[in-house]
């Protein structure tokens, strides 16, 4: 088990002793970690270890079997519904499957949260929605329906929708899955600029080593076998210092660590 993270001023999202389960089947137990305000926090781990499930718990979509999730020291699950809604209103999420509203065009998808939670005039809402779509490289597809897009385009549209309200906290579930290397690089740049320019706190689930090293300030590594966090910290530090062979293999794509120097990928980030 991990030691309790400090839940002081700096922790924006704190997870304490969180156990996730479907009926009797435990997915992860006793998770403890903290996400600081304004950092990019990466959740890593093998397929099926419970990363998407963790996001669902952070978003209040699934109730913890045990433990708690805190946003700025307010417990998500013990708050009354109105307060929970207020907390969630500060978040934006990109689901692994995109989860766009299929009966609405892209621009309507992005505009909907704006229409719900702001008093802006319709023209301005639409302008913002178009801007967000342009930011993810979907200018020109505003009037398309989600079903008329490719998988990667749906992902990007989902991203635009997540960013619609310029939320404080963004959750991205495998944003670069299904994207070509160049789009993936642009996406990393976008994520970095969201943090740097808008001060967003971003939780990203990703397997993409290049983007892990490029964007992560901090990370946790979930393991399916031991059902818990087996490493915490900046991925570069993990690569340099971790003695755990599972972490090591993950961060080097299975290549065995050869001694003093990490693989080339480790040096790619933030050039």
């Amino acid at each position: 088990m991990q030691p309790n993270p400090d839940l002081g001023e700096t922790a924006y999202i704190a997870v304490r002793d969180l156990t996730m389960a479907f009926a009797d089947r435990v997915i992860q137990r006793d998770l403890n970690f903290a996400v600081r305000r304004g950092e990019i926090f990466v959740v890593m781990g093998g397929s099926g270890c419970g990363k998407s499930t963790l996001l669902r718990h952070l978003l209040g979509l699934q109730q913890p079997a045990k433990g708690a999730v805190f946003y700025a020291a307010r417990s998500l699950w013990e708050s009354p519904p109105s307060e929970r809604a207020a907390i969630l209103r500060k978040t934006g999420v990109l689901f692994q499957s995109g989860a766009l509203w299929s009966s609405m065009t892209l621009v309507e998808n992005v505009a909907l949260p704006l229409g719900q939670f702001t008093d802006l005039p319709p023209g301005e809402i639409e302008a913002i929605a178009r801007l967000k779509l342009a930011l993810v490289g979907l200018a020109g597809f505003e009037e398309y329906y989600p079903a008329e897009l490719s998988g990667g385009m749906q992902k990007r549209a989902g991203l635009a929708r997540a960013m619609a309200l310029d939320p404080d906290i963004l959750f991205f579930d495998e944003p670069s899955a299904g994207l070509d290397p160049l789009s993936a690089k642009r996406l990393d740049d976008l994520i970095l600029s969201l943090r740097d320019n808008l001060g967003a706190t971003i939780v990203v689930v990703t397997h993409e080593l290049a983007s892990i090293f490029a964007i992560a300030d901090n990370s946790i590594f979930l393991d399916a076998e031991s059902q818990t966090i087996i490493a915490t910290g900046n991925p570069r530090d993990l690569l340099a210092d971790s003695t755990d062979v599972r972490v090591r293999e993950f961060l080097t794509r299975g290549r065995h660590y050869r001694g003093d120097r990490g693989p080339d990928r480790a040096d790619e980030g933030r050039v």
Partner: peptide, 25 residues
């Protein structure tokens, strides 16, 4: 069928996660 399909595609989750009440909407 409409709401069921939205559930399958996680569209309902997307509403909930944004704090938009599926009942209202």
């Amino acid at each position: 069928a409409q709401l069921g399909t939205m559930n399958v595609n996680q569209e309902i989750d997307a509403f909930k996660a944004m704090g938009i009440s599926t009942f209202d909407f």
